[in-house]
Design a protein around this nucleic acid. Structure first.
Lengths: 139, 139
DNA sequence: TTTTAAATTTATAATGATTATAAGATAGTT
DNA sequence: AACTATCTTATAATCATTATAAATTTAAAA
């Protein structure tokens, strides 16, 4: 009946995660909005569609997704955790003036040196802060 | 009389920060221990020497240092902010098994692409997670 | 279809890092 | 010494996250 839902469910089942309604909706949200949402943003957006949604469910689900490698935590700020649907490797730029977060392409392996050759690498985060072009122009 | 204290004081004065006893001690701590301490670690270590020390002072001072570019925030975990005395650019590796944090050399500019050419860059963070050699051997 | 058990979701309370506020202490200046 | 601004401290407030237990849903069995 609903092809999209089925595809999302399949993704979850492949990871041994039961495809509950909430989980499908949260996964859909993450795959659609690629703007590193906070838990709060995810919750307040989805609660419009799922009025009974609880913030604990969002936390639980994101934790599940993280374990299953469907989602990664974006390490940008220390006060609010942000999440990304696992996609191609990219870095994050945060503007200190307007607070916007920009993605940028990155050759994720180019900066790895021999010093890590005996380490098992599971994830890479590149985070740059500064002023974005828009805010630079304002000054 | 105390050459070391004088040097630390000078660093602060150059940044227009009044060299109070607490500030000098916190700066000294950061420069000596380069293990990305949390606020809690800094406080509990220093309170032995300065019994009247308040955690609020540690927060205030680190904030001052950050503004003055003496210190940078290490973006590793989201639940506990860690601080580094500003030194040569390096990345951080966190072992998911034992929790240790390793520094590693990086060619900080090699991974910057054209996509950021119109951005003003103030800081760069590279954070990698995985398993360290010691924990790999245990398995 | 009902029953039952397991898993999931929800509401609520607890925790813990950080921030805000105001009172007290300190240092520099006239 | 008195005055003033700054710094430090203690305390309370905030806010994201985690823990807990009850309620609901799901899936399987009878």
């Amino acid at each position: 009946m609903n092809q999209k839902i089925d595809n999302l469910a399949k993704i979850l089942i492949e990871k041994n995660i039961k495809p509950s309604y909430q989980r499908i909706k949260i996964l859909e949200y993450l795959l659609n909005k690629k703007n590193h949402p906070t838990v709060d943003k995810i919750f307040s957006d989805l609660v419009k569609e799922i009025p009974t949604l609880s913030k604990a469910t969002v936390y639980n689900t994101l934790d599940l997704f993280k374990e299953a490698n469907l989602t990664r935590i974006v390490t940008i700020e220390n006060n609010e955790t942000r999440y990304d649907a696992k996609v191609s490797s990219h870095g994050h730029f945060k503007c200190e003036s307007c607070g916007s977060i920009f993605d940028f392409e990155i050759n994720i392996d180019s900066f790895l040196t021999d010093s890590l050759e005996h380490f098992k690498i599971n994830g890479k985060n590149v985070y740059i802060n500064g002023i974005c072009p828009g805010c630079l122009q304002k000054d």
